[in-house]
Computed example of a mutant assay.
Amino acid sequence: MGRLVVTVVAGLICLIVAGAPRAALADARWGEADLGVEITASPRTAQPGRPVVYHVRVRNNGPGDAMAPVLTIRLPRDVKIVNVNVAECGPGRGISEIVCRTPGDVPAAGTGEVAVTGLVQPAARSPLRAQAELTSEIADPHPENNTAEVVTPVAEGADLAVRLASPARTALPGGRFAVRATVSNLGPEAVRDAYVYLRPRRAGFLSATGARCQEAAGFVGCALPSMSAGESSLIELKFQASRRAVDTVGARATVYSGEVGDRRPANNAASLWIAVAGVATPETGPGASPDLVAVPAGSVGDAHRIGGPGHALGDDARRGTAGGEYHAGGRRHAAEQDQGHQRGPDDQRRKPVHSHI
Score class of each variant (00 low, 15 high):
residue 341 H to V: 07
residue 276 V to L: 09
residue 309 P to Y: 07
residue 273 W to I: 00
residue 292 L to D: 01
residue 310 G to V: 01
residue 279 V to K: 12
residue 270 A to P: 01
residue 308 G to N: 06
residue 302 D to C: 10
residue 328 A to Y: 12
residue 284 T to D: 10
residue 337 Q to E: 13
residue 313 L to D: 03
residue 266 A to K: 03
residue 310 G to M: 05
residue 328 A to V: 03
residue 261 G to M: 07
residue 270 A to Q: 01
residue 336 E to A: 11
residue 279 V to L: 13
residue 322 A to L: 15
residue 313 L to I: 05
residue 294 A to N: 14
residue 313 L to N: 03
residue 340 G to C: 11
residue 322 A to S: 12
residue 281 T to L: 14
residue 341 H to N: 12
residue 306 I to K: 06
residue 266 A to V: 01
residue 265 P to D: 04
residue 284 T to R: 14
residue 285 G to S: 09
residue 340 G to W: 08
residue 299 S to K: 03
residue 315 D to Q: 15
residue 267 N to Y: 01
residue 283 E to C: 12
residue 270 A to C: 02
residue 313 L to C: 05
residue 292 L to C: 03
residue 317 A to K: 09
residue 328 A to K: 14
residue 283 E to Q: 15
residue 291 D to R: 15
residue 337 Q to K: 12
residue 288 A to L: 08
residue 291 D to C: 14
residue 333 H to P: 06
residue 334 A to G: 12
residue 308 G to I: 01
residue 291 D to I: 08
residue 338 D to R: 15
residue 312 A to V: 06
residue 337 Q to M: 15
residue 336 E to C: 11
residue 282 P to R: 11
residue 322 A to I: 02
residue 311 H to C: 09
residue 289 S to W: 13
residue 259 E to M: 11
residue 316 D to M: 09
residue 277 A to D: 08
residue 263 R to C: 03
residue 266 A to T: 00
residue 295 V to Q: 13
residue 333 H to E: 10
residue 325 E to D: 11
residue 317 A to P: 06
residue 323 G to N: 03
residue 326 Y to M: 13
residue 313 L to V: 02
residue 264 R to N: 07
residue 308 G to W: 05
residue 310 G to R: 06
residue 279 V to C: 07
residue 308 G to S: 05
residue 265 P to S: 05
residue 281 T to G: 08
residue 293 V to E: 08
residue 341 H to L: 15
residue 302 D to H: 14
residue 288 A to S: 12
residue 282 P to M: 09
residue 309 P to V: 02
residue 302 D to Q: 14
residue 293 V to Q: 11
residue 263 R to A: 08
residue 305 R to P: 01
residue 299 S to P: 09
residue 272 L to C: 00
residue 283 E to M: 14
residue 328 A to Q: 12
residue 291 D to Y: 09
residue 260 V to S: 04
residue 322 A to D: 13
residue 306 I to C: 09
residue 263 R to M: 07
residue 276 V to N: 01
residue 307 G to A: 04
residue 260 V to R: 08
residue 325 E to R: 11
residue 325 E to P: 02
residue 333 H to W: 12
residue 329 G to P: 08
residue 343 R to G: 06
residue 303 A to Q: 12
residue 341 H to G: 11
residue 317 A to L: 11
residue 280 A to S: 13
residue 319 R to E: 08
residue 264 R to T: 02
residue 284 T to G: 07
residue 277 A to M: 12
residue 336 E to Y: 10
residue 302 D to R: 15
residue 275 A to Y: 06
residue 282 P to E: 05
residue 320 G to C: 09
residue 311 H to E: 05
residue 267 N to P: 04
residue 317 A to C: 14
residue 268 N to V: 00
residue 265 P to Q: 07
residue 309 P to Q: 07
residue 333 H to K: 15
residue 285 G to L: 07
residue 279 V to F: 11
residue 344 G to D: 12
residue 321 T to S: 13
residue 262 D to W: 04
residue 281 T to M: 14
residue 332 R to A: 14
residue 330 G to S: 15
residue 259 E to P: 01
residue 322 A to N: 13
residue 285 G to D: 06
residue 315 D to N: 14
residue 289 S to A: 14
residue 316 D to E: 14
residue 276 V to Y: 03
residue 293 V to H: 10
residue 268 N to F: 00
residue 322 A to G: 15
residue 315 D to F: 15
residue 269 A to E: 01
residue 303 A to W: 06
residue 287 G to K: 11
residue 292 L to V: 07
